[in-house]
Write a protein that binds this DNA or RNA. Structure first.
Length: 341
DNA sequence: ATCCTGAAGA
DNA sequence: TCTTCAGGAT
């Protein structure tokens, strides 16, 4: 007689206390599940609730998404961050249409070969849509499992990460994997939070090693720390006759493929470009923007060209758009905020 | 190592 | 208000 696993308790909890009415739940349509999982990868539910319906209305199925211009996809993704997700989403849709006849392949192994679908997302889709017994291991689940199991390994180490994957697979129930998987996600997102877990509400509290030790916040163990550098650039907000000049950012790097204001090394480089330009302008208050690996100061300079004046020599290639057009394009969040006033 | 944003904590 | 942090794939 072995002690029942944690899965049964989690499944019962999920049925009673988990989230059920979310727009991407209650379907086995892999397109919808995939879309929600990718949006949820680095984004909170409340934000995805805002984006998911709009995205689905514009791209109701994988064929529509595959056929759309990347610019349209980026435009609807604008503000969600991590824009490589949107690029991969688009590539993945095309792969599903071209290589799989428009149907998502029904196994986690096949799903994980598609762009933007890693091992954990593949397992989630396979569990929800195809009932496959596949383990997920995203940030929330790492927290739940390391705590309940008292897993002390340092997740900066790939060997320890591998061990945890094996443990995640060992917890899988024989049946109801979809409910179990959703339960792990919901528990991690609501009860087993990073900073102040609500252990008294947790269905696993009686078996949780971390709670027994009195230090649930100590898990998961991660030694590697990120150090952030600083960068500083100038932005040119060039206007003429009710329009402004936007440039498309390179396909690699920060804000890849998004439309933005021309960026310069520093204020001097920007002023050099405008030295011979007619018109007038002024510096606006600096924008502070934090990314994963650096803090970014953006110094916007607004400049109004007289109607009919030629473009300043050396202006990077781009196009004139109205403010309304600009706001419908794929803009980075701080640039959108700046232009929207 | 890189990639973005909003929320939570101080 | 300011700073820190969470969150997967490539």
């Amino acid at each position: 007689m072995t002690r029942p696993g944690l899965a049964g308790e989690l499944i019962a909890w999920q049925r009673q206390h988990g989230r059920h009415g979310l727009p991407w739940q209650g379907t086995r349509d892999a397109y919808r599940v995939w879309l929600s999982e990718v949006m949820l990868q680095q984004t909170q539910v409340s934000t995805v609730l805002d984006y998911y319906p709009r995205f689905l209305a514009r791209f109701p199925d994988v064929q529509a998404l595959a056929a759309a211009p990347l610019d349209d996809v980026l435009s609807l993704w604008s503000g969600l961050g991590y824009y490589s997700r949107a690029r991969n989403l688009h590539r993945c849709a095309q792969a599903v249409v071209v290589q799989h006849g428009g149907r998502f392949p029904p196994s986690s192994a096949a799903l994980a070969t598609l762009p933007g679908i890693g091992r954990s997302t593949a397992a989630a889709i396979a569990a929800f849509c195809f009932g496959e017994r596949a383990a997920i291991l995203d940030g929330n689940v790492k927290r739940v499992l390391t705590r309940v199991l008292g897993f002390e390994g340092d997740l900066s180490s790939s060997a320890e990460e591998k061990r945890l994957w094996a443990l995640a697979e060992a917890q899988l129930p024989e049946r109801d994997v979809d409910v179990y998987t959703q339960g792990l996600m919901d528990l991690g997102a609501t009860v087993c939070s990073t900073r102040s877990p609500a252990c008294l509400l947790c269905p696993l509290q009686a078996r949780c090693v971390a709670k027994a030790a009195g230090t649930p916040e100590r898990f998961p163990v991660k030694t590697r720390k990120l150090k952030r550098s600083r960068r500083s650039h100038a932005l040119l907000w060039l206007r003429q006759g009710g329009r402004l000049w936007l440039v498309q950012r390179p396909e690699r790097g920060v804000w890849a493929g998004l439309w933005s204001l021309p960026e310069f090394e520093d204020a001097a480089a920007l002023q050099a470009l405008l030295a011979a330009a007619p018109g007038e302008g002024e510096w606006l208050p600096a924008i502070e923007h934090a990314l994963t690996h650096f803090d970014w100061t953006l110094q916007p300079h607004v400049w109004t060209l007289p109607t009919g004046a030629a473009l300043p020599a050396g202006l990077p290639p781009g196009r004139w758009v109205t403010e309304e057009e600009a706001l419908a394009m794929g803009l980075p969040a701080p640039v959108r905020k700046l232009l929207a006033g």
